[in-house]
């Protein structure tokens, strides 16, 4: 049946056919727009990363050398290990501002125990991280204080503890066993990068294949629903803070082995870089959504942005502005506004 024959017979039927046509045209247009927007949202972080790499490579040939690649990876590890833990916390709908201080504490503990324990100094360092994370989790869950406030306080408290132990001075780390284990190379591959890759895979498996990972998402997606469905919300929340504390401990060790010293200011501001990396990767702060691979992308974007701007010789002041703009722009593009009813 064509519209032409209808035209002569019945004006009403013609109207009808016309509005049907219009409706389907509008529909397919909308669908196409939605699909392309979905593509942009999903692939923006990786496109941004590719764009940055190409731009910096064109501007400075040293950017694409193997030695710079190794440098980039080494600069990424500490941030990545912290951001992995934060990914869980953020997907569960919470936040942790104290990770920078926890990393600093772990580095100090590693520096103080490395002379006697060697590479085994990672054990007390991680234990301190785990303890700090557990305390955060307990105060948050049992005290029912918002995680932002708990960890804001913890950030200052843990920094204070660092100052007490270091008296504000630098403790150098020159135990070879420790430095080689966590800062050395084998076959040209830095040990720290291997550790970070292993931890990434472990976190990926935890989040995507375990029941615990699903529970973390459920708590972030709808805490009340999760609780009424029998999920032990409190246990899940304490669990993610313990995991983050443990990872912050490892990050502290890698940090110490890389810089061969523990300073009182170590890790300051790291929490904001890590939150930024998670968010730039496309994991929203509203909870329920996100992935480990997005966090890896976000970390690489943040590090390559700094590294590339350094190599190009951009004014450090301008660098800060660029970083901030990239952060907001990335969220502007990737955020899925249909799932967030109110922007706060």
């Amino acid at each position: 049946m064509t519209t032409d024959t209808l035209k002569e017979e019945d004006p009403k039927a013609r109207d009808l056919a016309k509005s049907k046509q219009m409706a389907s045209a509008v529909k397919s247009q909308q669908a196409a727009r939605r699909r392309s927007m979905g593509m942009v949202k999903n692939y923006f972080p990786i496109a941004l990363l590719a764009l940055l790499c190409i731009a910096f490579a064109l501007m400075n040939h040293r950017f694409v050398t193997l030695s710079n690649l190794v440098t980039v990876l080494q600069q990424t590890v500490t941030l990545l290990v912290v951001a992995l833990g934060l990914t869980f916390v953020i997907i569960a709908g919470s936040i942790d501002l104290s990770v920078g201080s926890i990393v600093g504490m772990a580095t100090v503990v590693a520096a103080m125990t490395a002379p006697s324990l060697g590479a085994l100094a990672i054990i007390p360092a991680c234990a301190v991280g785990l303890l700090a994370g557990t305390i955060n989790g307990f105060v948050f869950v049992k005290g029912k204080v918002p995680s932002f406030i708990v960890t804001l306080g913890a950030m200052v408290v843990y920094r204070g503890i660092i100052l007490i132990f270091t008296s504000g001075t630098t403790i150098s780390i020159d135990d070879e066993r420790f430095v080689n284990a966590f800062g050395g190379n084998s076959l040209g591959v830095p040990h720290s990068v291997v550790i970070a890759v292993v931890l990434t895979v472990v976190c990926l498996l935890i989040l995507d294949t375990t029941v615990f990972g699903r529970e973390v998402r459920a708590v972030g997606g709808g805490e009340r629903v999760a609780a009424l469905t029998g999920i032990r919300v409190e246990r899940v929340k304490i669990g993610i803070y313990m995991l983050l504390g443990l990872l912050a401990g490892v990050a502290g060790v890698l940090n110490g082995a890389w810089s061969m010293a523990a300073t009182a200011q170590m890790g300051t501001g790291l929490e904001l870089d890590a939150i930024g990396a998670v968010v730039v990767g496309g994991t929203p702060l509203t909870g329920g959504q996100g992935s480990v691979l997005r966090t890896v992308l976000g970390c690489l974007i943040m590090v390559i942005l700094s590294n590339g701007m350094d190599m190009v010789g951009l004014d450090p002041y301008i660098q800060n502005i660029a970083k901030g703009v990239v952060l907001v722009a990335a969220v502007f593009v990737t955020i899925d506004r249909s799932k967030i009813s109110v922007m706060k």
């Binding site: 699903r214 998402r217 459920a218 997606g221 709808g222 009340r224 629903v225 009424l228 329920g288």
Partner: peptide, 17 residues
């Protein structure tokens, strides 16, 4: 608000408990 997480898939909600 209490029965299911509307943003999650039908599958995710059905096996949540």
């Amino acid at each position: 608000r209490e029965g299911l997480i509307v943003d999650f898939s039908i599958l995710d909600n059905l096996v949540m408990a």
